[in-house]
Design a binder for these strands. Sequence first.
DNA 1: TGTGCTGTAATTGCAATGATTACATTGAGA
DNA 2: TCTCAATGTAATCATTGCAATTACAGCACA
Lengths: 146, 146
Amino acid sequence: MQISSRFTIALHVLACMDTFKDEYKVTSDFLSASINTNPVIIRKILSQLKKAGLITVARGTGGISPARPLSDITFYDVYEAVDLVENGELFHFHENPNPQCPVGRNIHGLLDEKLRAIQEAMENEMRKYTIDDIRVDMQKLLEREG
Amino acid sequence: MQISSRFTIALHVLACMDTFKDEYKVTSDFLSASINTNPVIIRKILSQLKKAGLITVARGTGGISPARPLSDITFYDVYEAVDLVENGELFHFHENPNPQCPVGRNIHGLLDEKLRAIQEAMENEMRKYTIDDIRVDMQKLLEREG
DNA sequence: TGTGCTGTAATTGCAATGATTACATTGAGA
DNA sequence: TCTCAATGTAATCATTGCAATTACAGCACA
């Protein structure tokens, strides 16, 4: 099972938002051209990023901009905004194990702590990277491209 | 997006395999009763665990047993056996970003390293836990239950 | 040889994703 | 105030993956 492309699309969106902020109005149509997908998909993602307080979207006139410093938007914030399942559980437990069975009635509680540690390891690593890191890397790359 | 229940089911299977090894023949029917799912689902998972070299399955006579020491079967081994997508990429990249766009043509390479680090953080944490840890915890728990 | 179990194909229901069309709403600028 | 580009959102559709289920062939031991 993979984490949906909404996550990498959202990172792409935020990279564009910074890169083109002085040259273009960054709209869902503009973004969908760079990402090569449908504008409605983008608008859905923009809506999620807005709801999470990461960007502002200009209704009517169009275009997006960051709602807080790029160094204060981590990969985890983005992941949480667009891809988090209900109650934030990464691992899916099979429902209704048999309570008559000693393993069945204990397995969930027994695994919980370890699974949470695994999920947290991933999420903590996500918190290390910010959109500002992308900005810096992108700037370097584009300078090298000339 | 969640990691499929095959992973937690597989851990449940391996816990049962040890807990009941002396009392019962651990068959797909026996397991499906504890897990409360369909025997065919279990057989599919057993087949994946067998293919990964974690267990042996007795054809004809029935029942499963570990193919190597429980302390040598990590959560990652199980995850890899039952839930890994092709080429092992946790994150799904949107296909065909626009190569005309400076962000579009660079975003994949630019994110790759960070996404790999995130995935590895999760996988490395998975490698810390083994089926033997489950055995020990389960034993303690069952003693306390009396 | 009979019996119990595995291996596996085929089908179904369901949910999530992504693509697309359509249209009401918004708000800045002419 | 009207225009128009853009957002917000509903509705539909195709595709995919998961899980459940039925069915049956193959296997090994008693």
